[in-house]
């Protein structure tokens, strides 16, 4: 599929995070550009894979501004400025974050949750209500709008958590292991959510982690493997990016899963095992 790369949407430079004296991730560098395909809206879908304890969750917290980097920076596109190349350092609330448990406010119904997520938006009450209604309808939550999180099914909870973050943040969404512990139906539901997000705006960028490499290869157009690097023959004890796979360049993005994808799955697993 023909595509072109435009302005940078995510720029991570020399990112390091340490808790007290323990360095968790170090020297993480990557750049993602806005992918444009003529005639259709295409956001970016980025997967971060790696073995447990390699710093995926810490990287996500840094990408969402929930932890301050010890060194380096995370820059995202500043859509409030007219300059298309304008960038800003990420801060809390700029990037939506959905954790594994799909955490929601336990004391707010779905409608109240969405109203709260929109509270800072410069829109009239009627416009907000219309927007909420649109999301409730298109994501199949209209019937449940007055229910609390404890009254929702796993799938309804996921959709609510994702919409809440879409409404609150801008174009970026980070999901930490969104497929963990889900049945086939709910996995399909989350995959559909990804498609809904990335087909709504060109700048919409979904970053997710998963232990299911087949799913990562199926859904992402760019995959980063995070692991312990080998330096001078020794394995370091901090996480960093050890491999990047650009599925767009390889012609594997946005296409049916086939033998080439399977071969890539093997390569990624190999890279993970070595790091």
């Amino acid at each position: 599929m023909n595509y072109s790369l435009h302005n940078t949407v995510l720029f991570v430079e020399n990112l390091s995070v340490a808790y007290d004296d323990r360095v968790v991730i170090k020297n993480i560098n990557f750049e993602e550009k806005n992918v444009v395909i003529d005639g259709r809206t295409t956001g970016q879908t980025i997967a971060i894979v790696g073995r447990s304890g390699r710093g995926k969750s810490t990287l996500f917290k840094a990408l969402t501004g929930l932890v301050q980097p010890t060194a380096g920076s995370v820059l995202i596109a500043d859509t409030t400025r007219s300059d298309i190349n304008a960038a800003k350092a990420v801060k809390e609330g700029d990037v939506g974050f959905v954790d594994q448990k799909y955490t929601l406010f336990r004391n707010k119904t779905i409608s109240q949750t969405f109203e709260f997520a929109l509270r800072h938006k410069n829109m009239s009450k009627a416009e907000k209500n219309d927007l909420i209604k649109t999301y409730l309808d298109s994501w199949g939550l209209e019937k449940f709008k007055d229910q609390y999180p404890c009254e929702l099914s796993g799938g309804q909870r996921q959709r609510t958590a994702i919409i809440e973050q879409i409404l609150s943040s801008g174009h970026y969404m980070v999901l930490d292991e969104p497929f963990s512990g889900l049945d086939v139906g709910n996995i399909e539901s989350v995959k559909k959510s990804f498609r809904l997000i990335t087909t709504q705006h060109d700048l919409n960028t979904v970053i997710f982690s998963t232990h299911d490499i087949e799913l990562a290869v199926e859904l992402a157009d760019s995959i980063y493997v995070i692991g312990y690097p080998t330096l001078n023959g020794n394995i370091a004890d901090y996480g960093t990016i050890v491999k990047h796979i650009d599925l767009k360049k390889m012609g594997l993005a946005w296409s049916e899963f086939d033998s080439q994808h399977l071969q890539l799955v093997k390569e990624i697993k190999e890279a993970m095992l070595q790091s």
Partner: peptide, 19 residues
């Protein structure tokens, strides 16, 4: 996770305490 969730929704620290 509940504190982080509130922070991702642009809650300042006092709002996190309240919500």
């Amino acid at each position: 996770e509940e504190f982080d969730h509130a922070r991702t929704l642009k809650c300042n620290r006092w709002e996190v305490l309240l919500q």
